Amino acid sequence: MAVAGPAAAGDVVDARGRAVSVADTSRIVSIGGSVTEILFALGLGDRVIAVDQTSRYPAAARNLPGVGYARTLAPEGVLSVGPSLILAIEGAGPRSTLDVLEHASVPVVIIPDAHDADGVVRKIEAVAAAVGEPQKGRALADAVRADFASLGAAVAALKDRPRVVFVLSIGNGTAVVGGADTSADAMLRLAGLANAMSAIKGYKPAVDEAAMAADPDAVVVMRGGGQVLDAETVLALPAFAGTPAARDKRFVSLPGSYLLGFGPRAPQAARELADALHGTKLPALPPRPWASEPDE
């Protein structure tokens, strides 16, 4: 006799406007680092049976079976672990894989993605609805909303707006930087920083002249993404060698899932980035159990 899962969400509408019937949430495959963080923050980590490569936090997630990278999934790998529910962040794919998964017998719920405070709250609410835990979702969303509000008030009181370049990677001596409409740009703005590369859109290589003309006060990178970007290497690039960032050796490296994941820890990440580059300590945010574990 089949045993029902710990919660049945019923019919939920996902980010693609699809009505998805969820009957069993006992075996969840989580695709997307922020989705995984939310599940664990809701206290539902014991239901997660497999994750994608971007799910790096908390440490318990890294010990789970993997199903590949969020944007290059194979349906066989996802279905092989026997999920009762698949939660996938918007943008996961490829579309052909999602089509196969959506026509399988396992419900697939696409979680909306956005890089602002409201977007993080909506993401939390969507995950909670999909797993049939709206009350836990409201509690988590309210706490994260309060953290964003406290951060926003503190950042608004800052007088300076340092000009910053986010470097995603380096190839052939050229830095790939985050321009407008990127998660990096959104995080810089949350931290009260000006994106010195906002004239470009997306993540693109920056020619040396453009980067030098941007005259950044600091460079920010993420760690844990496979490529090691250290201050000595980045600041020595011709694009940055003559800038205030290189002169003052202002360089910040934070874990990628923390800095650009836009999960429940986004307010903490923005505050840490602001502290590092504004030269002043912002008021502390309340201790949160979902943000208490050291990141890798």
Rank of each mutant, 00 (worst) to 15 (best):
222 M>C: 08
288 R>K: 12
275 D>A: 07
276 A>F: 04
213 A>K: 13
214 A>H: 00
222 M>K: 06
186 A>V: 09
242 G>K: 01
290 W>Q: 11
274 A>R: 09
273 L>R: 05
186 A>Q: 13
268 Q>H: 15
275 D>T: 07
278 H>L: 06
211 A>I: 02
257 S>A: 12
225 G>N: 10
260 L>T: 01
236 A>G: 10
197 M>H: 00
215 D>S: 12
197 M>A: 10
290 W>F: 13
221 V>Q: 05
255 P>R: 02
248 D>K: 15
264 P>C: 03
219 V>I: 06
248 D>C: 13
239 A>G: 05
216 P>C: 00
269 A>S: 08
287 P>G: 10
261 G>C: 00
236 A>F: 04
221 V>H: 05
191 A>E: 06
215 D>F: 09
251 F>R: 09
190 L>V: 06
286 P>C: 11
271 R>K: 08
212 M>L: 15
228 V>R: 15
275 D>G: 08
290 W>L: 10
263 G>T: 00
214 A>C: 04
284 A>M: 08
208 D>N: 13
253 S>M: 01
211 A>M: 05
194 A>M: 11
287 P>R: 14
261 G>V: 02
190 L>Q: 13
235 L>P: 13
251 F>G: 09
272 E>N: 12
194 A>F: 09
204 K>N: 14
268 Q>D: 13
217 D>T: 09
208 D>L: 10
264 P>R: 00
236 A>Y: 03
209 E>M: 03
228 V>P: 15
296 E>Q: 15
249 K>I: 13
295 D>G: 14
248 D>R: 15
224 G>M: 02
211 A>V: 04
294 P>T: 00
247 R>P: 11
266 A>M: 04
284 A>N: 09
226 G>R: 08
204 K>E: 13
239 A>Y: 07
295 D>K: 15
237 L>F: 03
208 D>G: 12
245 A>Y: 05
295 D>A: 15
